[in-house]
Nucleic acid binder design. Sequence first.
DNA 1: GTCTATATACCGATAGAC
DNA 2: GTCTATCGGTATATAGAC
Lengths: 226, 226
Amino acid sequence: MARTQKSADDPRRRILDVAAAAFAASGFEGARVDQIAKRAAVNKAMLYYHVGDKDVLYETILLETIEDALARIAAATASSKTAEDRLRSTVATIADTARRHSHFAPLMLRELASGGATLPDRVMQRMRDVFQAVRDALEQGTRSGEFRAVDPVATHMFIAGSLLVLLAGGPIRRRIRQLTDVPKVSVADRSPADIASFVCDVVLEGLRPPAAPRALRRRTPLKKKN
Amino acid sequence: MARTQKSADDPRRRILDVAAAAFAASGFEGARVDQIAKRAAVNKAMLYYHVGDKDVLYETILLETIEDALARIAAATASSKTAEDRLRSTVATIADTARRHSHFAPLMLRELASGGATLPDRVMQRMRDVFQAVRDALEQGTRSGEFRAVDPVATHMFIAGSLLVLLAGGPIRRRIRQLTDVPKVSVADRSPADIASFVCDVVLEGLRPPAAPRALRRRTPLKKKN
DNA sequence: GTCTATATACCGATAGAC
DNA sequence: GTCTATCGGTATATAGAC
């Protein structure tokens, strides 16, 4: 059918998916190659044959995700006119990347915690490009007067931090909920798209220039769809 | 001088401090007991004698930090009148806890990434109390009309996420800066107190009820002190 | 209380048969 | 391409001498 297999039948694809989940759950050092091979239903020697050693495995997963995010950000923001549109598209695309690659947010949180200790240089360079995409939108808004003068680095970390923690916080929130009562429904339990909207709403409120009347700024309504 | 040693001469104290740094840098699985003992200048057998095994070590560090945070939050918010004061005090105290225990933010980020997989139940219960402190301030503001109706869970994760990532993001920001030019100064490079103010400013902007005139909301000025 | 030596287990990686 | 068997290294934890 095809020269290169991309479906779930492809052993390499299965290995990468299983490994991504393992790295997300246990970190680079905590993930076990034996366990990854077992869960991917391949012999350990085949894992090394098809992908490479543990470092290559990790780097491949991160690069794959980040390249996907960058391509989608470029596509999504190509037609953006205003800075607000550009910022919303960029953040929504990052959130959607986290939805399509469920390991993305945990891996990024771990890299933040370690200061990027296990990040290969090539991955670090592409991550910087993702960061730059957010800052570009912020700086465009500041230049055009759409946003008030803003600290682009701090604002970017603000967006990235709240987004990543909201996206990755599901499991720990559920564990806490078991200890408490609180069966409440929260935006935090909704889809990545709704979470992205929530983050953008709050941040854009803070970015609004002093002169602009409040009523002109729309607030994204939450849709029922997951 | 004292019955229980608390200074840096206390081997137990040294072990806990070194271990905290190791867990923050490499995670629970990645941290090495041998290395912790070596850096704390104690024999490995003494580490087990004075503290216990790796699990006890980890739980002790987390509990110590969280109990400290809870006690300080209670003290700081005791005299709070308005919800804004209460929220600012709580967030500032959490940030100050992160300053005094530099391992705090990385450890929390790792636990978020793993969904609390390595979190002992006792630690989880106390963490819930920290979360509750933030939500209490938010709900007080909503009840009194000081804040607009707000999603307390999502808003809390929003605050916690941006705060933790801003606090823990220093090293990775420096590594990215080596790849780029951008020698700019950012709020993100300032003290935990300034970072806490920044987060509160943005969030309070989003919490302001529709009717309140914008000029009435103060924005905390950044102080030079670290 | 302190240290050496070691038990026990496991992990990443590969050699080599098929 | 696939698998078994295993090497070499290292991890946590403790026993036991002092």
